[in-house]
Every structure is written in C-alpha cells, then in structure tokens.
Design a protein around this nucleic acid. Structure first.
Lengths: 110, 110
DNA sequence: TGCCTATATATAAGAATCCTATATATACGA
DNA sequence: TCGTATATATAGGATTCTTATATATAGGCA
C-alpha cells in the first residue's frame, strides 16, 4: 500500500472522484477507493470523516442524513455545483504534478 | 504552479533525484527543481533546509561545508549508499500512486 | 443467550511537511 | 550606497495524515 507521506492530498481528489458517479456515505467511499485502486490507495475512516466535514464547509459536497433499509442512519454526500467545478482544475493540477515529477526523476508511467 | 496541498511529500523525491546526478547545495537544488520542471514544482528555501536536515539524520544524504570560488560558505550534499537504495522503491511508490489515481479518476497522462 | 464481525459515525492526540515571515551575511553592479 | 543575487537558518502556523478510542446496531453462530 502507498505510504502516508506520499498520498498526502489525494483524499480530496479521491472523494470528489467517487462522488462524481454516485451519492455515497463515508464508509462506502472508503470501500470504493480501496477496491477501485486494488488496495493501493486506502484511507482510514478517521481520516475520511474530518475531510468530509471540511469539504462540506468549503461547499464542495453536501451531506444529508438518510436511513438504510436496515434502519441504520448514515450521512450521504453528493457533489455540489461548486464541487463539480472544482474537480476539473484539481485533476489538471495532479496531471501537472505527474509531469513535473517525470521530468525531474524517472517515475515510471505504470 | 502546483499548490502546497498537492505537492506534499514530493520534496523528498525531488531532492534525492537532483542529487542523483550531482552533489549540490540547497540553494542550487531549489533552482534546479524549478528549472527542470519548468516552474511547475517550486520549493521555498524555508521548506528545503529543514527537509535536508531530516534527510541527513535519516542517513540518505550527507552534507559537507565547502567554500565557493567567491569565498562563500555553503553546505554541499551528496547521496549516501542508503539514499541511493531509497530512490528506487520511492519512485515505484509514486508510480503506484499515479496508477491508483488514474484508476480512480480521470487524471490525464500529460 | 452471548460473542464476533460488519456496518456506521465521531473525536482526541500526535507526527510530518508545507507555508509566510524574519534574520543574518557577502558579492557585484548601477 | 543601494538593490539584487547568493546562501543558510529559524519561528510560528496550517493542513492532513496517523493510531487509538468511543458509540451504536444488525446478523450469524455456538
């Protein structure tokens, strides 16, 4: 798994990305991020929840309390228009970082 | 330029990378990182110096005081054997992060 | 019934790495 | 003499991770 020093800052992109396709609650986001990256990128819930609160305060996502079919309360988040707008430049910034590191070192394009 | 939240953790890779080819002092490293990435990746010296101290403590680089032709003292760093060994798995970890983010989102392969 | 695992959210305390601001000191050119 | 480039150093703050802990419910199994 990718270490904490390296993955810093990826949680924001990861959350916006998984929310692009569906409205999800935190627990489910963690599972999808891990599954979709085949275990390479993994976040503890103690990291995800505070990040969700911050992102909601910034207006990028909005959470609503819902009740599952099993009577379990959970907070489902969806992208706001501001969140959708944020995703595109954020992806571009990550692309630029990839390119910069490739210019600087020999990071393979696996 | 790439923002601070995203580039977190890249300083270590950047320093090891520029030191792979040459023995350099901090001020020169900052310049090369900026030049080689065409300004995309830029570190303030206040970020670089403490990072150099930490990396020296970890045994990845070793600094020696030298005097330039102009009589200016400066601390030149070179990779230790441990630092050279560190570079390869570090690059691989970054490659894995790139792949993970590409699987998760639509980060272009610029 | 009791225990374990999965589901689901929440917070506290600490570490790491970046930022801006500030300080020091020398060399060179206008 | 004043500004710019060279060169290192530290202080204080922000952000985002970590591990540890707490709460609560549902379903399966012994």
């Amino acid at each position: 798994m990718i270490g904490p020093g390296i993955k810093r800052g990826t949680a924001e992109l990861a959350i916006l990305s998984v929310l692009e396709g569906a409205s999800l609650h935190g627990y489910e986001m963690a599972r999808r991020i891990e599954q979709q990256t085949k275990g390479a990128l993994r976040f503890t819930l103690a990291a995800l929840y505070p990040m969700l609160y911050r992102m909601e305060q910034r207006g990028w996502i909005r959470g609503t309390w819902e009740t599952s079919s099993h009577g379990r309360r959970r907070r489902c988040y969806r992208l706001t228009p501001a969140g959708k707008k944020k995703l595109s430049p954020l992806r571009q910034e990550w692309s630029e970082l990839f390119r910069a590191l490739r210019q600087l070192t020999k990071v393979a394009d696996a």
